[in-house]
Nucleic acid binder design. Structure first.
Lengths: 205, 205, 205, 205
DNA sequence: AATGAATGAGCATTCATTCAT
DNA sequence: TATGAATGAATGCTCATTCAT
């Protein structure tokens, strides 16, 4: 592939990707057939194979573009923050917001993770996200703002919190994204122990 | 179904479930055919349908039994702990250990979550886990050991941390389960801010 | 087969045949499995094959016994009638009544006729019925009570009328069997032309 | 379905229907597999499902088209007849001729009647045939050409005679269709009583 | 006589992909 | 670029029949 496309061709390609993304999210990858996709767009099957080498390639491209967009959004949100903790916080908030706004793509990430063929794409994106977070975590530790822990662990833990809270509370229970972002930030920064208990624990050391 | 089985029949049923669980985990649900399963067991195709009404029912039963076992393990681990925080900690440790020991079942949970038909089963299990955690969180808040927050949020956050850290660090990066459990506990209890920063923050209030 | 059966065995055999006949009538021959039958009776599959060599043999025996019973009924109804036309009439009435009372067996006759394997059994029964009717038709012609026509044709025509009127009007439209028998007799005896038209026609000859 | 077909596609569809109709008639519906059909046509299995949604739909379409053709033939045969009795006679003759010429479709009607799923299609056609016959019967009664009886009964009786005589005498015993049509007409019009007996009966009234 | 278990060929249907036009 | 048509391997599932106990 990597065909050179006319403007019209580019539009078609987009259209196919969008329709496919939506169907995949609603019905799943397997249950959505090429026929479903081209029928929804109103074109013949040949068209599909003009733009994509295979169903697999199509899904992969949807995923990669979505990851790229999410990452772009995170970087933009972080850009102006000098404080490491606030950078992380901004990243969390931006992620929750993006996942909320692109629910079907969020769903596709989950779908992809469960499929042998696409899991690597997701893993790659996740590793990228961790790599992006790492410098801020390390900077936070150097500034004694963040507990000294394996920074990779910390980064994955944040990912886990954001992912789960957004999926369950925003997508399924329809809570407002900002409130969930607040909760995610609070949990990630302070954990669940109360200040009182924290003080008591400190006294021990 | 719900057939009355002889001892021999019960053994067969177990064997089919185990072989299927393992194949599903390795290759995925769709790619694993009934033929694969019965061939692996070395029986005819009809045998499968003597014990299970469908491939779908089989998967569901695997999931439900796995969830039951995980829950049993968690409850056992928590049983003797009087302190709410320690109960939560024990639950986290038990979960990481179980997921480590039953890696293929952990994988099945992920697979299932991505499939329309099985997602409800997973959600149900997750809700059960949250419901199981809730009393301890609330007790912790009442004893002023845990920050006052929406306890449901807290429970899901813990789930997210445990799930992600175990999946990536234990299953993929092969770190020792105990170390990962330590890290998960630490993150969940204290979050990522350092004691110093916490003190500084406290001063503000 | 043709096993010597104890009294209990004979009961079992009857029970299997009755249950099977009813299921076949309701759901069809193919859609009714041996499993359905033995489950309905509450016995294991082996029992079935103790009494019948195959599903096919079972159906055949049901058919043959039903035909035998129908024929017995017809002969009994005709026995005391000296007049050929009245014999035919009595036969028609007896047939409609029997088919009404044994609706499921009537249905089985239809089912069987459509199946290559059983059609011969039905044909045989039909030929028997025709052969049974023939003497009365011939006697009627000899006594100048019945138009001179190919008696075989006449016999099959009667069969056709009885079969169709009973099936549609009695079984489907739930009309009383006696009324339908009346109508069948009237049509068979006089056809559809009015006496006036008949007279007019006669004048021509 | 209801796909837009090219001329070539339309040809394929016809071909599949014809081959299928013939196989169904020879071997039965169940025993004829999709594989049999496409193999006979010499195409891949997918082709079948390009043109038909299911085996069931195919059979139904065969039936409906056959019924349509039979009805067309009947109407054409009747068109120029002013006399009600002659219209009925013409209809009977046209039916016998059509059933003779399309023996395999006649067989399919029988097959279909025995199958739960297709019986309604047959019943519908039968009701149509009765509805088509009714006006002539009523007209005949009004003109005092036909005995006053329930016209629906009369119509079904005619159907029964035509069906049975054609099936047994034409299809099985290979008698000439015209002779059988003659016999059917004679029986339907005059019944089986002789003119003499009829006169005698009249005397009574 | 009876049971639960097992067999395995057979079937309708799906679907990613390719092809001829 | 685009279409309708075609491919054919693969899949889940059924079921009459047999077997071991």
């Amino acid at each position: 592939m990597a065909r050179r496309l006319t403007a019209r061709g580019e539009r078609r390609r987009r259209q196919l990707m969008e329709v496919a993304a939506e169907r995949f999210a609603v019905a799943g990858y397997h249950p959505t057939s090429i026929a479903d996709i081209v029928d929804a767009v109103g074109v013949g099957k040949g068209v599909f194979y003009w733009y994509f080498a295979s169903k697999e390639e199509l899904f992969e491209q949807i995923l990669v573009e979505a990851q790229r967009d999410l990452r772009r959004t995170q970087r933009a949100a972080i850009a102006d923050e000098p404080d490491p903790l606030r950078r992380i916080e901004a990243g969390v908030r931006a992620s929750v917001a993006w996942l909320d706004e692109h629910r079907h793509l969020f769903t596709l990430f989950e779908l992809a993770r469960a499929d042998e063929r696409f899991a690597p794409v997701i893993r790659r994106g996740e590793e990228q996200a961790v790599a992006d977070t790492l410098p801020h975590v390390v900077a936070g530790m150097d500034a004694d703002l963040i507990r000294r822990e394996d920074p990779v662990v910390v980064a994955y833990a944040i990912l886990g919190v954001v992912d789960r809270l957004t999926r369950v509370l925003v997508l399924e229970e329809d809570r407002p994204a900002e409130a969930v972002a607040d909760a995610a930030v609070a949990f990630c920064l302070q954990g669940l122990v109360s200040p009182a208990a924290a003080r008591a624990r400190l006294a021990f050391r």
